[in-house]
Every structure is written in C-alpha cells, then in structure tokens.
C-alpha cells in the first residue's frame, strides 16, 4: 500500500484529457498502420481449398509459432513430447510464476544482471529458432 501511495503523490497529470490524448495519438497511429497501410498494401489471401490428399504442401505456421515449429525438428522419437508440449507449457507456467520466483524488490535493470541475462539468452534463442524456421 505504501508503494501505491508514494506512486500517486508523484503523478503529475490526470487521465482526462491529457493521458487519453496520448492514447488517442497512439491509436491513430495503429489505425492508420493497420487499415491504410498493411490491409491495403499487403492484402490477405485465401489459399487453395483444404485437400487431405496433398503431399507437397508445406504448412509453415505463422511467424510467432516458427520457433516451436523449428524446435520440433530437434526432438526425435520419444523425446517429441518435450518440444511439442513440455517446452511451451513449461515456459508459460514459468512465465506465470515469475513474480513469485523473482522476489528481489530491485526494479532497475542494471541492478538485476541475472534477470536481464536470462532475458537476452531466451530472446536470442527464440530469435535464432524463428529465423531457422523461416529459412528452412
């Protein structure tokens, strides 16, 4: 509670209109980006109808699932469950429990070297897997 009070004292502006104005600017940006740039310049396509007898179609997932797609290739046979279920479910559970695991009250990134190093490693591994998944 003390933390919250201290926070409130330092706050300098109100939600309406100044903060809402900022948010509105951001929404404008997203709106223009999505509807006028992405949707018009890169229209979404509808592929060929589903065909269960096709053996040449390579189903690549959307880019945000590419890391798992690539990971599946490295866990042969009985270890498949590790990549298919273990890694995704495990990381979600760890992510959810993060505030209960990391109880260090320090918030500044420079004073949390382990947390920051972990973040960089995980991001790097995910990025590499995603890239490999995209090119192969």
């Amino acid at each position: 509670m003390e933390n919250i009070k201290k926070t409130e004292e330092k706050e300098g502006t109100t939600f309406y209109p100044s903060h809402l104005f900022k948010e509105m600017v951001v929404m404008m940006f997203v709106f223009v980006l999505v509807s006028f740039i992405l949707a018009l310049v890169f229209p979404v396509k509808l592929g060929d109808p589903a065909d269960p007898t096709d053996s040449s179609f390579v189903p690549k997932p959307e880019w945000y699932f590419l890391a798992i797609f690539q990971l599946l290739k490295y866990f042969p046979g009985v270890f498949e469950a590790i990549a298919a279920v273990g890694v995704p479910v495990g990381s979600i559970i760890l992510l959810m429990l993060l505030p209960l695991i990391d109880k260090n009250p320090e918030r500044r990134p420079r004073k949390r070297p382990i947390a920051m190093a972990l973040m960089v490693i995980i991001l790097a591994v995910t990025a590499i897997l995603t890239l490999l998944g995209a090119v192969t």
């Binding site: 330092k10 300098g12 502006t13 900022k22 951001v26």
Partner: peptide, 19 residues
Amino acid sequence: ILDKPVHGRLNFTYCFGGM
C-alpha cells in the same frame, strides 16, 4: 476515470498495452 492521476512522464514504451 476522468480525474484519475496519471504519471506525466510516460514515454511511448508505455503505450503497448493501450495499442
């Protein structure tokens, strides 16, 4: 809602939730 105090010095990285 309207008069709820908010930090004055929030940069754009605080906007991802709103986005």
